[in-house]
Amino acid sequence: MSIPNHLETSEVVLLEMEVLLIIVATGAWGGFVSYLLKSKRKKSEPLHKGIMSCLTQIVISCFTSFLLSAIAIEKGLSFNMILLAAGIGGVFAAPILKYLGDKLKKSVEDNSLIK
């Protein structure tokens, strides 16, 4: 499966939606794995708090996997590497977002007109 750029046919739109769904599903799975690795649910904690925590982790992981896969697509990597980036983005969402946030903050501070 290839990821074509800027072609105007109906097949490409369906392919891009398919790729997007695969990336989001991979990110969601990575978020679930991350939740399982980090969860230390107490017996006294209500079940709905654990479910909400898991869903929150999945949403954050889907966003991060989408960002990393967009970077991988822009770099022209293969479909397997794009899926790998999506999976890594899902599992390591918090550290990746912190790192990207720090890089963006530093970039904005360095390029600021007011010093």
Rank of each mutant, 00 (worst) to 15 (best):
N80A: 14
A28G: 05
K98R: 10
K40N: 15
K49S: 10
L21S: 15
G87C: 04
V91L: 05
C54E: 05
S53L: 08
I60L: 10
V108C: 10
L47T: 13
S65K: 02
K103Q: 12
E45S: 11
N111Q: 11
L47D: 09
T9V: 08
H48R: 09
F92H: 05
F66K: 04
V91C: 02
F32T: 06
A28L: 05
T56E: 08
K40M: 09
L20G: 08
P46T: 03
V59D: 03
I3P: 03
V59F: 06
E45C: 08
I88V: 15
V12W: 01
L21G: 15
L84V: 08
N5S: 14
E18K: 14
T26C: 04
T9Y: 08
Y99A: 15
K105C: 09
I51S: 07
H48G: 07
N80E: 14
I23C: 01
V33E: 01
I23K: 00
I22Y: 06
I73A: 02
L21C: 15
L104P: 08
L100K: 01
F92Y: 10
G50T: 06
S107M: 12
T26I: 05
I82H: 01
E109P: 06
I114S: 09
S2E: 14
N111S: 13
F79L: 15
G89K: 00
L37M: 15
M1R: 07
N5Q: 14
C62W: 00
K49L: 15
S53M: 06
V19C: 06
S69R: 00
R41W: 11
E18V: 10
Q57V: 07
L67M: 11
K38C: 09
L113C: 08
L55T: 04
I73C: 05
I22T: 09
I22P: 05
A93E: 00
S78T: 12
I71M: 13
I58W: 00
K49Q: 12
L68Q: 00
S107H: 12
L113Y: 11
V91E: 00
G87M: 01
I96G: 01
V33T: 06
E109L: 14
L55C: 07
S2D: 13
